[in-house]
Amino acid sequence: MPLVEAKQLEKTYVSGDIEIKAIRGVDLTIEPASFVSFIGPSGSGKSTLLNMIGCLDPPTSGQLTVAGQDITKLDRNTAADFRGNTIGFVFQDFNLIPVLTVYENIEYPLLMVQKLPAPERKKRVFALLEAVGMADQAAKYPSQISGGQKQRVAVARALVTNAKLVLADEPTANLDRDTANRVIDMMKQMRDEFQTTFIFSTHDPKIVKNAEIIYTIEDGKLQRTINENGGNHA
């Protein structure tokens, strides 16, 4: 069963008299444990598509199932629970919580969303800290670490809930090229380790060569490419 399945997905924004067709009839199937990239210029609809898959924004029309669940019509609490249990998010601006340490940031979804018992939380947080190579920075606050490190913490936070799908909207836009490549490599490593599906968007063709499946978005339409070289960019 595919993890993400979209049929004739459309999203139209209405502001005033103007209608903006951000996504125009997208069909999409993503299998579990894939490493997928959406590439397209600014304004092409990458964020819109990711937000719909991420259950943050309902589609205007069409079908959309994620992890077997129809997510086109969820109420706020159900949508929140669904995101908390199934999807992990990585943001362009890292979006760590400044009052929490690295450790606490990773722990947050287990504490405030999934309500796991303390020993289990500790085990998982330490496992993820190790996995993303941030174990020695656990006590630091976000303001005390670099951008690349922040994004590692963000990936750990996304994975700690055992999410089936991690959505990363332009996760490398605020990083230099080297760091960006390393973050993408790390995400792919995580995919290998946890069998989690990653979808990241970018407008940078040089970053996208790391992906295995590439969707090119232009004017709200998708085109699929298999990147045979995916992962062997070095």
Binding site: L56, D81, G84, I97, P109
Partner: peptide, 16 residues
């Protein structure tokens, strides 16, 4: 606002 958006996105319920 940004922080609220973040915790909401990662699954914190509105009531919380």
């Amino acid at each position: 606002v940004n922080e609220i958006g973040t915790i909401a996105a990662i699954g914190t319920r509105p009531g919380k």
